[in-house]
Amino acid sequence: MPKPKYKDAGFAFAYILPSFLLILVFSIIPIIMDVGLSFTSYNMITSPEWTGLDNYKRLFTDPYIGASIKNTVIFTFVTVPVQTLLALVFAAVIADKFRSHFGEAVKSAMFIPVIASMVLIGNLWTIILEPHGIVNNFLGLFGISPVNWLGSKHLSLFSVCIISIWKNVGYFLVIFYAGIMDIPAELYDAADVDGAGTMQKFLHITVPALSSVTYLVVTLGTIWSFQVFDLVYTLTGGGPGLSTQTLVLTIYNTAFRSYEMGYASTIALLMFVFVLVISILQKKFLAKED
């Protein structure tokens, strides 16, 4: 006897309901509210006032937005290539030379920064990078005079980049390592027969085989660049000047320090557009790969 197609529909809806309610309340409704708020001026004391496209126009002249976007672009172009390359090289070296307890220990050690919170990392590196902290002490051994890592307009963003790379390499290393483990061993054996060197095997087998993993790592790194908050909140507060200002920091300050809820929502939507474009490009690329 054929079963009716939707026999279990009631059961299915009941099982989905709790999850759907949460997604509705904390994702779907908020994104719609974001759009509505973005056309208003709202300070939480008087009721929201319709201001049309004013908030959108303001985006173009706001120095905080300009600085945030500039910093995000620099941050992306510094952190993404460096952390991707480091993670890839270390994953390949460990997979090639240290498939042992020692290699596992190195991976575990490099993963420790990943499990710490960004707030903790910010606290820790503030102390490490103090003008009289250990990094400057160490450089002093080589006769290098103390560097103002976080307090100089020219270096602060660079320092934030270094710390971020330090924290994330272990994460991407694990992803690359898993990717390398999926590459068939026969490919390497065949190359060995042909007398290929380590470097040739890396460039001609490992790197091409990891192209979709690399794309994932690059996309993730780029999306994370747009989400930087905890680290600059604890390390620099966005300064000195606007040198480490980020989009999320601007959203936070605009909403919860200046109480300009409407404008802050507009900035949030701008951020959403950036992240969405990157996600869609990734999906397109991966679809092409398959």
Partner: peptide, 15 residues
């Protein structure tokens, strides 16, 4: 899944 939590921060606060 494509919506970063920071984007919905303000409306979530109101909710």
């Amino acid at each position: 899944l494509m919506i970063p939590s920071q984007v919905t921060l303000i409306p979530m606060f109101f909710i």
